[in-house]
Design a protein around this nucleic acid. Structure first.
Lengths: 139, 139
DNA sequence: CTTGACCCTGTAGTTGGGTACAGACTCTAT
DNA sequence: ATAGAGTCTGTACCCAACTACAGGGTCAAG
C-alpha cells in the first residue's frame, strides 16, 4: 500500500495536520485507506482537494457549501437540479462581491496615492471622507 | 438633543440592536451622546458607517482591519505611513481574491450551463472534474 | 531494544463575530 | 398611575473553523 502520510499531505497543502483530520471528519475529503497499523495513506490528489477547499473558503464559501460541491462527486444519485440552483445563486453572490471588491480597491488605491507615506495630516487623506460616505461612486 | 435611537439605527442599517452596541464596544463606531436618562442618540451618519462595515466585512475584512480604517478618522496623531502600507497590502490581497472569484465564477457558470436542471447524470457534469483539478485555467 | 519522530483517538480550548437573556429603568398613551 | 414598548448594563451562550493537548501505539535507526 502506497500513498502519502498525513504530514506529507499537510505540508503539501500548507495546512496543519489537525486540519486534515478535521476535514476528513467533516466529510470534505473522503476517508483514506489505512495501513495495517491504522495509519492513513492518502492519494496525492488530496493535496489539490485541500488547496481547492482553501481557495473556495478564501472567497467566502463555507465548509458546508464546499462539501456540497465535493460530495456530489461521490454521489451516484446526484441530483443536478439542486446543483444548478446552487451554482446560479452563488454566481449572483460572486458578482456583487466582485463589484464590492472593485469599489474597495479603488478606495484603497486613492488612499495609497494621496497619503504618500510620511506625516501627511489626516484631514488631507481622502480615505477617511470616502469611508464615511458609505457609497463609493460607481464605475 | 436629537438624533436616532439605537433601534432606528439598527433598522436603518439592517443589523440587530445588540450588534450596534457590540460595534460600539469594539470601537468601530464612536460612543454617541446620551439623553439625561442614558439613552443613546446617534447621529444619522452611523447608519452609513455600519453599512460600510458590513460591506467591508462581506469582502473579507476583519473588524480589526475595519476599525483601523475608521479609527484613523478620529485620531489627531494619525500616521499616514501605516495606512499607506496597509492599503497597499490590502490592494494585493484584493487583486488575488478578484482573480479567484473570477475563476470560481466561470467554474460555476460552466456547471450551470451544462447541468440544465433535471436528472443529468453526474459524470456529465463538468464541475466535478474541474473541482478536482485544483487549478482552473488562467485567462 | 530503546529513543525519537510520527501517528492514532478523543476531548477540550480558542478566536471571531455575534446573539440572547436577566433584571432594572424610562417613556408614551390611556 | 399603570401597561407595554423601548432602553440600559452585564454576563452568558452560540456557531464556524480550527488548534492543542492527553494518553497511547508504531516504526526506523543506531
Amino acid at each position: 500500500m502506497n500513498g502519502l502520510t498525513i504530514s506529507q499531505i499537510a505540508k503539501g497543502s500548507n495546512v496543519n495536520i489537525e486540519t486534515v483530520r478535521y476535514y476528513e471528519k467533516r466529510g470534505l475529503i473522503s476517508e483514506p485507506p489505512r495501513t495495517e497499523s491504522g495509519y492513513r495513506m492518502f492519494p496525492k490528489e488530496v493535496i489539490q482537494d485541500i488547496q481547492f477547499i482553501k481557495r473556495a473558503q478564501d472567497i467566502g464559501f463555507t465548509l458546508e457549501e464546499i462539501k456540497k460541491l465535493l460530495c456530489a462527486s461521490n454521489n451516484e444519485n446526484f441530483q443536478s437540479e439542486e446543483m444548478y440552483q446552487f451554482a446560479n445563486n452563488k454566481i449572483q453572490e460572486i458578482d456583487s462581491k466582485i463589484h464590492e471588491f472593485i469599489q474597495m480597491k479603488s478606495l484603497l488605491e486613492e488612499l495609497a496615492a494621496k497619503c504618500p507615506g510620511s506625516g501627511v495630516p489626516k484631514d488631507q487623506c481622502p480615505i477617511i471622507t470616502n469611508l464615511s460616505k458609505g457609497e463609493i461612486e460607481d464605475g
